[in-house]
Design a protein around this nucleic acid. Structure first.
Lengths: 133, 133
DNA sequence: ATCATATTGCAAAAGTGTCGCAAAATGATA
DNA sequence: TATCATTTTGCGACACTTTTGCAATATGAT
């Protein structure tokens, strides 16, 4: 997978530098990672570089921003992981991934009814997880 | 409707001041409004006041934050308008409201399957509207 | 090894949101 | 209406987040 992304970077004319791959590694590991989590995990990399790399990854659809609770985070793009949504617990702050074919289907219906061509979507569900209810 | 909110503020022990009502008016008109749109629409009101008022409105469920595209915006809470989601056009930036019973139903199903108790949710669909496709 | 280009760090600046405190506005009471 | 306690607001400072220009460094091609 990391290899695949390396290739994609090269194909698009960007160098898969050590720092870019290190940032990618953190995104793989933390999922979804806040910008600060990435910055703090990699003290040897300047914040400007982290921001620029995130922007690059988003442009290339390697990563995307999602809103869990009320801060955005970074996770892998849909080509590099199963598409899913988030259940965020207000109490323990855990973010659980869920796959929801019914929701995908419902979105298809709705957009078709409006002549809208969907490129992506983001669903965040906020509440209390089984343990914290 | 504005009257209803005035009453609600009083009941909760807050004064429905002119400035608070002016901010409410802007939220009514712009829907969903970015913080900067609100601040710029009301140059006579200090930024700190705008932020504090938005926080107050959110605490009282008069307003809520939603993410259209990649910045959050403020709109009326679910008690004061039909619950809906947004179709945001990447080209013309128009934000269209849609009501989607199927999606509400699908969310219910999904959360039940996970023992999750949903308090609110936010779905943003990004793509191209009928005119821009 | 050399060179043109891409990437990075650094420092400054812009943007966004929060806070303490003093001044002003409000509503209750007399 | 005048007084008073309380709430609301503006101001300024500050903290945090993100962007930018530029010089230094690293990279890949030759």
């Amino acid at each position: 997978m990391q290899e695949e992304i390396k290739t994609l970077l090269k194909e698009q004319g960007f160098t898969p530098t050590k720092k870019r791959l290190a940032i990618l590694d953190v995104i793989f590991k933390i999922q979804p990672a806040s910008v600060n989590q990435i910055i703090n995990s990699l003290p040897e990399i300047d914040r400007a570089t982290v921001y620029r790399t995130i922007d690059l990854f988003i442009d290339l659809n390697i990563a995307k921003k999602v809103y869990t609770g009320f801060k955005y985070r970074i996770e892998l793009g849909d080509s590099f992981q199963e598409h899913h949504h988030h259940l965020t617990c207000l109490r323990c702050k855990t973010v659980m991934d869920v796959q929801t074919p019914e929701i995908e289907f419902a979105i298809d219906q709705t957009t078709k009814n409006n002549g809208f061509r969907p490129m992506r979507h983001d669903l965040e569900i906020i509440g209390y997880c089984a343990n914290c209810s």
